[in-house]
Amino acid sequence: MSHGAADPTMHPEVQLSTSKGYFLGFAISAFLMLVATFLVTSHSVPPFGLLMVISVCAGIAVIAQIYFLLHIDISEHNIWNTVALVLFIPLFLITIGLTWWMFSQLYLRTMDMSVMSSVTNPAVHASAAPKMSDMPGMGSSPDSAN
C-alpha cells in the first residue's frame, strides 16, 4: 500500500471528492431528468425526435455522473475505477446486444408484424392484417390439410 491505512480521508479517492462536484453532478442529472420527463408528458416533440432528445439527455447525464459522482478519469491513482469502467463495456454490449438479438429472432417467429405496425400507425391495422388462412400451414378448411 502506497499510503497509510490509518486516516481514510487521506486516500486519493476520498481526496477527489468535493461537495461542489457532488452537487453539480446531482443538479445536472436532476435537471436533465426533469427535461426528459417534461418532454415525455407534454408530447411536444414527435416520437422520433423525442427518442433522440432523451438519448442525448441520458448520454450527458451518464457523462456527468461518471465525472462528478464516480470521479472516473484516467489518472494513475484512479486505475481501479477505470478498470471497472472498462470491464463494464463488454457486459453492456453482451446484455444489450444478446437481448436485442434473441428478441428480434423471437419476434420473427411469434409476432404478427402488422400488429406491431398498428401500434404506431393504427390505420394500417385493419387492411394489412393477414387472415389466419393466409398464413402457411393454416389451411382455410379442414379438407385441405393433408
Binding site: 453482451i94 423471437l106 417467429r109
Partner: peptide, 18 residues
Amino acid sequence: SWLVWLHHFFTMGAGPYV
C-alpha cells in the same frame, strides 16, 4: 456466466440460431 442466461428459457422460441 454473463453469456448463458437464455438457457433458462430455451423454450421461449427464439429459434435455432439463438
